[in-house]
Every structure is written in structure tokens, then in C-alpha cells.
């Protein structure tokens, strides 16, 4: 009886581990979608309202979900902090929010590249850069979704299979 209970626990634990791994693959597409939406909002703020960068980021932070919201709020706060930072420096200091939230390094790198140009040219040029960033985020999101579909299914089964294998080896 005890053996059966132990075997069940091992299968359940490995299965749960597999499900957690599977779930982790669905977070990245969501994060990328949220960032892409925020980039589109920023383009709108620049195109129609000519809002200053801190003001636009503050407004965007109020309209999207975490962790992208926390990142935009932090960026607005650093920009408006009166420390005399350039947009690139303020962005660098804000990217830690994305890293802490588990964003992939390659996604953080995409946002980081924007720092070199953000706020430093006319609206037409800014919109071009934001459109390019949006395309890249969308491209990454599609790839992340394909990976999620493939890997999530794999991990959903793999966890339980590994659990069963361990049980068989122990018996």
C-alpha cells in the first residue's frame, strides 16, 4: 500500500514539474504581446498627442498589465527624476524590472536597443523606430508561441512519463 502511495506521489510530483515547465512557455508570448501593445500605445502618444516621454510612459503604465506596466512606470519615474539622465540611461536603469519579472534576455535586448534613439529625433523618425521594434516583438511573439505549442505539449507528457519511469526503475 505504501509502495503504491509512494509511486503515486512520484508520478504526481514529476507530472506537476512537467506542467510547471509547460506553463513557463506560455508566459513569454504573453509578456511579448503586452510589450508590443505598449509600443503601439507609445507610437500613438507620440503621433497624435506629442506627449513627452515621461508623460506618455506614465499613461501607458496605467493601461496595460504587469510586468510591462511596472516597467513603463519605472521608466517614467526615472526620466522625471531630475537626475539629468538621457533616455538611454533611464531605460537601462529600468530594464531591471523586466529582468526581475523573468523576461528573456533577448527580449530585454530588443527594448534596450530602443534607448539609443528614443526621444532623440522628430516624430516621423520615432514612429519608424517604434514600428521596427513592434515588428520585432511580434516576430518574437510568434516564434515564442510556436515554441510554446511544441514544448508545452512535450512537457505536459514528459513529466508524467519521467515519473512513471522512475517508479518502474524503483520497483
Amino acid at each position: 500500500m505504501l509502495r503504491i502511495l509512494g509511486a503515486g506521489l512520484v508520478v504526481a510530483a514529476c507530472g506537476a514539474g512537467g506542467l510547471i515547465m509547460a506553463r513557463s512557455y506560455s508566459v513569454r508570448p504573453q509578456n511579448l504581446q503586452s510589450l508590443a501593445a505598449a509600443v503601439q500605445m507609445l507610437a500613438t502618444e507620440i503621433h497624435y498627442a506629442r506627449s513627452s516621454l515621461p508623460e506618455a510612459c506614465r499613461r501607458i503604465a496605467g493601461q496595460i498589465d504587469n510586468p510591462a506596466a511596472a516597467f513603463f512606470a519605472r521608466f517614467a519615474e526615472v526620466l522625471a527624476g531630475g537626475r539629468g539622465l538621457t533616455a538611454a540611461e533611464a531605460l537601462d536603469q529600468s530594464l531591471a524590472v523586466l529582468a526581475d519579472a523573468g523576461f528573456a534576455n533577448q527580449d530585454i535586448e530588443l527594448i534596450s536597443q530602443l534607448g539609443a534613439v528614443l526621444g532623440r529625433s522628430d516624430a516621423e523618425d520615432q514612429l519608424k523606430h517604434l514600428a521596427i521594434l513592434y515588428e520585432r516583438l511580434e516576430h518574437s511573439r510568434i516564434k515564442a508561441e510556436q515554441e510554446r505549442d511544441k514544448m508545452a505539449r512535450l512537457w505536459n507528457y514528459l513529466g508524467f512519463c519521467v515519473g512513471a519511469l522512475v517508479v518502474l526503475m524503483l520497483i
Binding site: 506629442r50 513627452s52 526620466l79 526621444g119 516624430a123 523618425d125
Partner: peptide
């Protein structure tokens, strides 16, 4: 740097 701060890091808003 002074220009960027003066423009609130938003050159496009002051075209």
C-alpha cells in the same frame, strides 16, 4: 545632455 533634459527626452514633442 542639456538639450535632451530640456526637451524632457522628447525631441519629437518640440519639432
Amino acid at each position: 545632455r542639456t538639450v535632451e533634459i530640456m526637451a524632457e527626452n522628447s525631441w519629437y514633442a518640440l519639432e
